[in-house]
Simulated scan of single mutants.
Amino acid sequence: MGEVRRAAVIGAGIGGLTAALALARRGCEVVLFERAPELGEVGAGLQLGPNGMKVMAALGIADAVRAAGVVPEMVELRDHDAGRPLMRLPMGAAADARWGAPMVNLHRADLVEVLAAAVKEAGVELRLGREITAGGTVQGEVEGKAFDIVVGADGIRSTLRAEIGQGSLPRYTGHVAWRALVTRDPAEPAVTALTLGPDRHLVTYALRGGTLANVVAVARRADWRGEGWFEEDDPDTLRATFAGWNDAAEALLARVEQTWLWGLFDHAPLPRWHLGRLVLLGDACHPMLPFLAQGATQAVEDAWVLADAVGAEGLNGLETYAARRIDRATRVQRAAVAQGRLDHLGGLVRPVVQLGMRTVGAVTPGFAARRFDWLYGHDVTAG
């Protein structure tokens, strides 16, 4: 049914750029629409998992992505009281050997730059400053032009989701996240540190050759009073929220000069991801809480599978895409929620669980890696 020769992609975030590149690599004429007047990403860092790096390799840009980011040596879980290690997950060469690719930490803007250069080289037409809303995209029309498919990669605030009959508003999840950047000594080991405490956690990792540390601090909050999705916040509010944590955590937060506070939202699972010629990917159809750092990576997986399916089957491939992706994305969403509960344990159960983590980590060093085989070992490019 219907060869896909011309595609419109709405949204030039990481998922949209990857989809545009993957479609163009299969000989499709692609027009990429972005409402912002210039390319960029609000926010700071992201972690692109080994499962996402396999897609980058298949698209021929893995070396550029690695060069733009930092490959961490390990992920280390720590307690909030004294900063003691609870469990370690080897990364770097160990991840490459175990899962077929490394994890790479990047500034969002740097990954966007790599992807943007690749889509331009692939002949994708980029139209900036274009706000595309619902109306005609199910039939394949955008700005009065006909397309074989329209890809809605316009994020959790997707205006296109309503056109497939899924217009529910995003819901606040009871969590907020501060994001900040601070300078660091590039000679320090590139360790991604996840510090766990009651109802909150703190993540730090190196960016830009190790010269910057990305800081993500997540805490429970009963409601979101911000007028938008994020707002600039007083660094002292961040510090007060994590007061009493270990010396290293407090010293890190003391260096924060500017921070942005985000409300964390999701929306109800969608029973379908496509209708007619319109198809959704990434946060438009499955927003992820950040507890597994898989939001960008799952959008990248979506992009590859979508391009692979429609390249082989035309419009019929939209059904194949959904069939291949819904269960996987749903599993990752649920696992992220479960990980958040584990990260934020409090009360009497917390020291018991953390003692178990230290014991298992010492007795069975490979346990942590095995827990993530299903996630990082997955390879959508293998078919």
Rank of each mutant, 00 (worst) to 15 (best):
M1E: 06
E3Y: 00
I10V: 15
A20S: 09
R26F: 03
V30N: 08
V31N: 01
L32W: 10
E34T: 12
L46C: 08
K54I: 11
M56T: 13
V75R: 11
R78N: 07
A82R: 15
A82D: 14
R84C: 03
D96E: 15
D96T: 14
G100Q: 06
M103A: 12
M103P: 06
D110K: 08
L115Q: 07
V119G: 13
E121P: 00
A122I: 11
E131I: 15
I149E: 01
T159N: 13
L160E: 11
Q166G: 00
T173V: 07
A177N: 09
A177P: 03
R179Y: 03
P189V: 02
P198C: 09
D199S: 15
D199W: 07
T204G: 03
Y205S: 10
A213G: 02
N214W: 08
R220T: 15
D223G: 12
R225V: 13
G228R: 15
D236R: 14
A243D: 11
G244H: 06
E250T: 14
A251C: 00
L253G: 00
R255Q: 12
W262F: 14
P269W: 03
L270G: 01
R277I: 05
F291A: 04
W304F: 11
D308Y: 06
D308L: 04
G311Y: 05
L315Y: 02
L315N: 04
L315P: 07
L318G: 04
E319I: 09
T320D: 12
R324Y: 03
R324N: 10
A329G: 12
T330N: 10
V332A: 08
A335H: 05
A338E: 09
Q339L: 03
L342T: 10
G347D: 02
A362W: 10
G366H: 08
